[in-house]
Nucleic acid binder design. Structure first.
Lengths: 149, 149
DNA sequence: AGCTTTTACTTAACAAAGCAAGTAAACTGA
DNA sequence: TCAGTTTACTTGCTTTGTTAAGTAAAAGCT
């Protein structure tokens, strides 16, 4: 119905901009983790478990931005590496509760200074106010009602 | 050095916010494409070729946010599907030039109204000014100097 | 010209993403 | 109580991401 598409003139693509920004932010983190046997996804899982405490896999997947099939496999590997535990609660044996282990917490501690410095750098170069504003917008974007086809 | 980490109190994570925002934006597009045999990546390749015209694979990969090995496979599949052509220019036979075919353009046309309406919806719900501002910030974030470890 | 380096991809190998289908436990309603 | 549904995962399969190694053409150096 619009006789002029929004993308036509500016050529700026939101999906591409999000991809590139993500790559910029996660690149240094990937580098940081490269030596320690955990990847970005496992790092996210550890961080969520540390902050939220023991969690059901569905909730954990949602908070770590992983699909359940991915988390199933990642969690198994992390349990084998001793970074997390998985237990089935007696009151509902469909569920699996994941929890971080001392080894997992140690791994986070190992990298916490470096991780903090990466984000401090972004905060400094990008500007704290601007960063807060960006986070606000990203959250708002995410909260937008989903279009139905 | 900071005695209070920026992430501590707010708990807002830029990587996660970027992931979630991307999922919000791309979800509807993935749904739209689901029926037509092309995925998100192939869609990006088609869009770039349509906008920029015939392109070398390296440049195309960079603009479509793909690594070259991924693009190699995707381009082969798309050529087999008749969506693009690949030619080797005589003046530099290392290169491969990809170009969109009429069938590829037709596929874009098939979805252009729906795609436009998805972005129009975002523009309306999110606000045009805010969206422009978000794009500015994402570009600035991406342009930040990369931290060296 | 002949040798090395650089450029532009391709191939290979393996982990991870994404979708669909499967399983098993809990719930729900006759 | 028992079939049907929902919930919470798990498994299987294909494609993609990622790193490393390989190939072939062009460019640069002597």
């Amino acid at each position: 119905m619009a006789n002029d598409l929004p993308l036509r003139r500016t050529k700026r693509s939101l999906p591409i901009a999000l991809l590139r920004a993500r790559e910029s932010v996660m690149g240094p983190i990937r580098d940081m983790l490269a030596s320690s046997g955990v990847n970005e996804q496992k790092w996210r899982v550890l961080r969520v478990l540390q902050e939220r405490g023991p969690s059901e896999l569905t909730q954990l997947a949602s908070e770590a931005c992983l699909l359940l099939p991915s988390l199933t496999r990642i969690a198994r590997a992390m349990e084998e590496d001793g970074l997390i535990t998985r237990t089935t609660p007696d009151d509902d044996r469909r569920k699996t509760i994941a929890a971080i282990t001392p080894a997992g917490e140690a791994l986070i501690r190992t990298h916490s200074a470096q991780s903090a410095s990466i984000f401090a750098r972004i905060e400094r170069d990008f500007g704290l106010e601007r960063l807060e504003s960006l986070l606000d917008m990203l959250e708002a974007l995410q909260a937008l009602p989903r279009a139905k086809d």
